[in-house]
Design a protein around this nucleic acid. Structure first.
Lengths: 213, 213
DNA sequence: CAGGAAATTGACTGACCAGTCAATCCGGGA
DNA sequence: TCCCGGATTGACTGGTCAGTCAATTTCCTG
């Protein structure tokens, strides 16, 4: 059987993949470890061979994916492009993460990011790092005169991420129409809303590339 | 004892008040019904005399408070003032709700609003109503030419509420400094960020090409 | 092919807790 | 004073699951 053919190390990954499906479907709390094992076509006990606890599975899922995101944001921050483009790249990356793997993103958003009580609390530092990186982009743009100073970088980061999270949550729970068009629309709207409020408008006419359409 | 002096109907309220404290302290899931009963100085079973289930307690807390908020938002929408002021009034009201009763607001935000999985799902309609009301304010402002049309009212409402929720969450979990000054600052920043991006700036649809001199 | 370590299995345990219920209390009306 | 019905009590039940562990299989090594 292909299943049992899989090497040992693969089993761990199979369990992680199954966990994404199971957690996304029933929610972390309502999901039993046996659900994960079943989904992975693996015996109950094997889950505990690879993971110390149910919690550790979710932690692993989150940390792995979040670090990729952090690396991308950090990288984007270094780019030599207008801040508006940086923010667009970030919102696009997050939304594409969701488009590419809705179940995983659902789990991360719903069970970690929006559950500051339990798992979010354990990862505040990782989450705060994302805020900080976005804040840096804003601060740099303020120094360059591209963004106005009325709103603190920290707050701008909050609002930016807040908009993204609301949109994702809307999709996840079917409260917002979903589709290729909506994804692209959202990427644009997020940046438009936030930057419209951050862009220096009256004072310094910064060359934010009047070319781009 | 003042406690036992309380009339029968008051007991129900005592349980609700105790639930706020208990849920806020330990989180709804981690909080046992016995914790609520203890906090209320009441026997375990009495909780079930007044409420059908643990869930019903949370539902009651949410619905009561949320309806007050909805009424306020609806009322504010009717006012004959600039949209920016309306939005400020709304963000101020929500933040003041939090200032006045942090525990209750914490429970509502953390256990209902941010738990779309469980309780949020049961109250989507009530939550959606808030979005709709805010969206109406934006739409009206767009018709009046005060807000630009790049961003749909629905999305604007999302971003607006998203910013508020992020700030509240930041306070609730101690990730953001808190205090009178910060409350006022936040009310202003939320509106400034969002409206800056919604306000029609110079009659120019695209501020990118903002006039220089 | 023997030996053993790592992988795999799934029945079982221990703890937890929402919700039930029979018993008791208490205030007020006859 | 007696009686009734609602208020109040808290021990108990039933069901759920995370996590354990001894037994079994698989597979590599010599």
């Amino acid at each position: 059987m292909a299943t049992s053919r899989a090497g040992a190390a693969d089993k761990r990954q199979m369990i992680l993949d199954a966990a994404v499906v199971a957690f996304a479907e029933r929610g972390f709390h309502a999901c039993r470890v046996s659900d994960v094992a079943d989904e992975a076509n693996v015996a109950y006990g094997l889950v505990y061979h690879y993971f110390r606890s149910k919690d550790e599975i979710l932690d692993t899922l989150f940390v792995e994916r979040w670090n990729i995101l952090l690396a991308f944001i950090s990288q984007t921050g270094q780019l030599d492009v207008p801040p508006r483009e940086k923010l667009h790249a970030i919102s696009a990356a997050i939304i594409d993460f969701y488009r590419y793997d809705p179940a995983l993103m659902k789990v991360i958003i719903v069970e970690v990011m929006r559950s500051a009580n339990s798992f979010g609390l354990r990862h505040v530092d990782l989450i705060a790092e994302a805020y900080a990186l976005i804040g840096e982009i804003v601060a740099k743009a303020q120094d360059a005169g591209t963004f106005k100073r009325e709103v603190s970088p920290r707050f701008a980061a909050l609002a930016f991420y807040g908009a993204i999270e609301q949109v994702l949550t809307g999709w996840i729970f079917g409260m917002l129409p979903e589709g290729e068009e909506e994804y692209e629309q959202a990427k644009r709207s997020i940046v438009e809303t936030i930057c419209g409020g951050l862009d220096e408008v009256g004072g310094v006419p910064r060359p934010t590339a009047a070319s781009s359409g």
